[in-house]
Simulated scan of single mutants.
Amino acid sequence: MGSRNIIGIGICSYSVLDMINYGSFGDIFKISKKQDEKIYAMKQMKYRGDFRDDAYIMSELYCLSRLKHRNIISLHDIVIDVIEIHIIMEYAANENLQRYLFSHKNMSHGQKYDIFAQVLHGVMYCHSMEIAHRDLTPVNILLTDDVMVKIADFGLAVKCISDAGSLLLCTDYIGTASYLPPQVLSQQPFLPKPVDVWSLGILLIFIICLEVPYKGFQDDILAQQRKESWVDFIEIKSHALDCIVPKEILCLLRECLRLDATERTRIEEIVCKWDKFKATAL
């Protein structure tokens, strides 16, 4: 693949090495900087007119320019040309969590607990900055060579409070259905932080079972959610995997996956409980 795909002002100082992934909001490339051959990842996003009118591009730029945390993908450079914007970020060699888990099925519980702990700390930092990710799936969680978590893909992320300090409700009902709570799937205006908490619960189930409990179309998922069928799902899957899910994890899942968003536990409490559990479980 030639660098002709990303020609623009300043982009010629980088070389394209490989395609990493096709994304709904942009394609991801592995690139190197010609000056020092350092490896980066680049998200290439097309736009029409003024890129500042594209909500997804602006959300990505807003979040990456403000979020500075060891578990958040870091921004290196932004290159803009007449039809594309190139967001250049740190490179995560182990790619995404979904692929990593499928290729490391014998990973120890301790390693899985540590990965989830890193995700929690990254999300807690986002929430402390009044930003909600809204698309926390294993595909959007990247891993470096030393298996450090890097939360990425902030195209659906939103500010949680207005400039005046009031809570902001979301009315765009998008995301990965299997990871979305009933408020989003039933298209009710919602606060974004509890959406992340619900997604974290589903993510934890995926990390343990390598499957999500809710599948199908939106109506199918809603029906499964109302029955709280994740409990039976975990019991069946843990039996098939010949493992016992600790009661502390089950209790935490109940707090994350409450149907009423107002009853879901805040991320700070989840982090505190998980860190205590991890310290005793290892």
Rank of each mutant, 00 (worst) to 15 (best):
Y62L: 13
F25R: 14
M42D: 12
A92P: 04
R258G: 05
L168A: 03
F217R: 14
V149H: 05
I270M: 03
I73S: 07
N94Q: 14
K112V: 02
N71V: 08
Y62V: 06
H127I: 03
S166H: 11
I161D: 00
Y214G: 08
N5C: 15
L167F: 06
I88G: 06
A41T: 11
L200G: 04
G175E: 01
G165A: 06
L253K: 00
G175Q: 01
F233S: 00
W274D: 01
D242V: 03
I57H: 10
W230C: 01
L252G: 03
Q44T: 13
Y47W: 06
D36V: 11
F25T: 15
E268K: 06
T176G: 04
D153R: 02
G165N: 06
I88C: 07
T262H: 12
L167I: 06
L203P: 00
C12S: 15
F217D: 12
R66W: 03
D196Y: 09
P192W: 02
M42S: 13
M58R: 14
S166P: 00
V195M: 11
T171S: 13
N71G: 07
I80H: 10
V79P: 00
D219T: 13
I249G: 00
D219L: 11
K215I: 14
H104G: 02
Y179A: 01
H127V: 02
S199I: 10
V149E: 04
D219F: 12
Y179F: 14
C170T: 09
M45I: 15
D163E: 11
V184Q: 05
K46M: 12
L169P: 05
Y14Q: 13
R264A: 03
N94C: 13
A281N: 12
E37A: 14
F51K: 10
A55C: 12
A240L: 06
V212P: 06
D220F: 08
D196E: 08
I221Q: 04
G165E: 02
P181K: 08
I7Y: 15
A240F: 09
S32I: 14
I249S: 00
Q183W: 02
Q118R: 05
L64Y: 10
V231W: 02
D50K: 15
V195N: 13
E37M: 15
L257A: 02
A41H: 07
G122H: 05
M129N: 12
I72A: 07
H86F: 12
D77P: 09
W198R: 10
N5G: 15
M124F: 11
R134Q: 11
D172L: 07
M1W: 13
I270N: 01
D172C: 11
I78P: 02
K112S: 07
I141S: 01
T171K: 11
A117D: 10
H76S: 14
M45E: 09
S162F: 03
L241F: 10
L253D: 00
C272W: 10
C63Y: 04
R134I: 03
